[in-house]
Amino acid sequence: MPSLLRKIYPILFVTLIVFISVTLLIFTESFTSAELQARLQQQVEEELESMFPELDDSVDNEDSEVYTLLAGGETIGYAFLAVGTGYSGDIAILVGLEDSETVKGIIILSQQETPGIGDRITGDGFTGQFTGLNIDAVNFKQDGGQIDGLAMATISSEAVIDAVRDTAMEKVKLIEGVE
C-alpha cells in the first residue's frame, strides 16, 4: 500500500495545488468583477454621450437589454451591446441606432485581436463606415453591403459586422414589439 501511495502522491499533490489556486482566484474574481462591471457601465454612458451629444436621459429596458435614449422627453435613439466572436476572444461592441433601421454609430468597447492587424477594427476608418447605414446594408461590399473589410483582418471585420447586424435585427424586433 505505501508504494501505491508513493505512486499517486504527485498526482494528488498537484490536484490539491490546482484546487487551492482555483478557489483563491474565484474568490478574488468575485471582488474585482463588481468593480469592472461598474466601470464598464460608466464607459458605456460616456461613449453614448459622445455618440448622441443631445442625450439627457436614458431608459434601460431590462427585458430587451436595449437603452432607449431620450432628449427633452423625445426618443432620439436606441443603444445596445453586441458581442462578436473575433480571431482571439470576444469583441464587445456598443451599437447606437438613430431609429429602428439606421445605425448612428458603433464603438468597440473591448477586444483582444492581434495587435497591428485585427485590432484595427477599433479605428475610426473602420467603425466610421457604420454611421448612417441602414441595418440591411451592414455587410461586406462583396456580399451586397456597404462596408469595406480590413485587409488581412477578415475574421475580425466579419465578427464585428455580423455581430452588429444580427444583434441590431434582433433588437429592432423587440423595439418595434414594444411600441
Binding site: Y9, P10, F13, V14, I17, V18, S21, L24, L25, T28, E29, F31, T32, S33, E35, L36, R39
Partner: peptide, 26 residues
C-alpha cells in the same frame, strides 16, 4: 514531489499572476 516540481511552480506562479491581472484590470 520531485517529478512534479516544475508544474507545481508554474501553477503557483500563474495563480499570483492571474491575481495581479485581475486586480490591475479592475
Amino acid at each position: 514531489p520531485k517529478i512534479m516540481r516544475i508544474p507545481t511552480f508554474i501553477v503557483i506562479i500563474a495563480t499570483f499572476v492571474t491575481l495581479v491581472t485581475l486586480v490591475f484590470q479592475a
